[in-house]
Design a protein around this nucleic acid. Structure first.
Lengths: 216, 216
DNA sequence: TGAAAGCAGCTGTGATCACAAAAGGGCATG
DNA sequence: CATGCCCTTTTGTGATCACAGCTGCTTTCA
């Protein structure tokens, strides 16, 4: 479990560096579903031997970010619709709780930052940049949830994001959209008003909207 | 992420065998919080080299079942009270949802099995057997949640159990109790009656009761 | 033209080793 | 008697290697 906010960690350890970089790429949709990876390939890319590559992969497999076939082949996961629905339900459960816990601590400075991030998301949308869209969208959520002061819950939410990463890329790539996320504005409005039921509904709507895309 | 129900898996792979056995010991409270482990020690115990031991440990660390210090020393986690509260809240969130999804599929055969398991729990309580108590208690919950047909959610719940394993042992070991869990009977009653609100309340009460022990 | 057989390359697994850093214990000193 | 220092042992890390199994392509035969 990765408990963010991580300490400063002056660890130039090879396996950790590989792990972090791969994790970021997967979470943000850099890799499509079903993409295959090899230990030697990863080692070559990061200029390390197989050992740290193996440890990084093992860790990512444990978090559901990568899949290993019975013969040990490594690929990014291809999620079934049932699995996607389940992960979205988990997002709704956990993130609604995180938002609710963040609400009493959300001051104006946080709301300003959220609005700024929302602006960046709008840019990504107009540029049809899926990776940047996913990255800034998650940054929006993470920024809010960090205020909840619940690292174990945030870690769980991030694990779900990680599992959905490659699929999100495929989904958003297929999407024709020109407007920034409407529910983010509802989230910000509810935060300003201190409206907890409204916040819960807005977060739930936002994290499950991908499902509607999928169904259509 | 470990998606139970696992396939038959005829994998005698060393690292997997070590992982599974260690995982079971940790989840069921075989190890106290703060217990230190070494790769060479694990390798000796399971008659393997350091490599599979390292992979198993890496996987368990990723799931929060073990902690690594900055220098790489391996111990079972010692949870702060805030972390325990958070994990209990996660259990409540996820397990209430799992129970709710299992309710429409819970037939009499399942309820009979749950009652049988409850009998075993009562035995463990009278014998003051903490490990057996934890094991059968989790078996009760897992048996119910398997009916929810939501492997990703169940995996999340198990990850939380895993993180709480050593602490649960310490808590229940400190507990003076002679009666079987009252909330399990409420869960069974709600299942029989098809009473969803009652089931949600009973599950929430059951998974957060450890907190009241902690506070007292 | 088609499928099946065989082969060469590649992939993950696990063992072993060298190495640096940390831990623990024993000793000497204040 | 307590405290700080040093040395020995133990620890995790990463590289390398042998090996078995799988993949995928080429070749061959019907």
């Amino acid at each position: 479990m990765n408990y963010p906010p991580r300490p400063v960690e002056a660890t130039p350890l090879a396996h950790d560096r590989v792990y972090r970089h791969l994790r970021s790429r997967i979470m943000h949709g850099d890799l499509p579903p079903g993409q295959s990876l090899t230990l030697r390939g990863i080692g070559r890319e990061y200029e390390v031997s197989m050992t740290p590559a193996r440890e990084a992969v093992r860790r990512l497999v444990a978090e559901g970010a990568l899949t290993m076939s019975s013969s040990g082949r490594i690929t990014t996961p291809e999620l079934s619709n049932e699995r996607i629905e389940e992960l979205a339900a988990l997002r709704a459960l956990i993130e609604v709780e995180l938002a609710s816990r963040a609400l009493p601590r959300a001051h104006m400075a946080l709301i300003d930052r959220l609005q700024a991030i929302n602006g960046t998301i709008a840019e990504a949308v107009t540029h049809r940049d899926a990776v940047r869209y996913i990255r800034t969208n998650l940054e929006f959520h993470r920024t809010l949830y960090l205020r909840a002061q619940a690292p174990a819950m945030l870690a769980m939410a991030e694990t779900v994001w990680l599992q959905m990463g490659p699929t999100m890329r495929a989904l958003y790539g297929r999407l024709r959209r020109t407007e920034p996320p409407q529910f983010h504005r509802l989230i910000i409005a509810a935060l300003k008003a201190g409206d907890e039921p409204g916040l819960r509904l807005a977060v739930r709507s936002d994290v499950t909207q991908g499902l509607r895309m999928l169904a259509s």
